[in-house]
């Protein structure tokens, strides 16, 4: 825990980066997705552990780059922040190629969040899983 306590602030249990993404989440989907807005969607998590996240992706068919990425999360502060951070990562520099984005690990997300309390790692960093499911969904749809 010691390394993730925010030393500058008032000992918030999370880093400033987590706090920023939690209080001001980026790229979340407000309202219901409209027909044609996205190519595919994916979900991860369950009620038992208390975190569920859903992601929607829009892919450039030629370059296979991620043109748009939206998400929604039901969960704790770190779950919200981790999904928000993931969205920022895949949309950086005009959108990451799917293959590149699939290589993002929970550890990468945690590093960008300046760390998470250890007990939060397992249950709240599920954005990469939800994204993998969305890519699978995208490829299945493409086959048809």
């Amino acid at each position: 825990m010691a390394d993730v306590i925010n030393k500058k602030g008032d000992n918030w249990i999370y880093s400033d980066k987590v706090k920023e993404h939690f209080l001001h989440p980026k790229n979340f989907l407000s309202g219901e997705p409209k027909e044609g807005d996205f190519d595919a969607e994916g979900e991860a998590g369950n009620f038992a552990c208390g975190d569920i996240m859903k992601v929607w992706i829009k892919v450039d068919p030629k370059t296979e780059k991620i043109k748009d990425f939206k998400w929604r999360t039901w969960g704790c502060a770190s779950a919200i922040a981790a999904t928000s951070m993931f969205s920022e990562m895949v949309l950086e520099k005009g959108g990451m190629a799917i293959e590149e984005a699939l290589k993002i690990t929970p550890q990468d997300i945690i590093a960008r969040l300046s760390g998470l309390p250890p007990q939060k790692v397992h249950c709240s960093v599920l954005a990469d899983q939800a994204f993998k499911n969305a890519v699978e969904n995208y490829r299945e749809k493409k086959k048809k």
Partner: peptide, 9 residues
Amino acid sequence: EKLRSISAV
């Protein structure tokens, strides 16, 4: 309202 707007549930 805010948390529900970003909730996946």
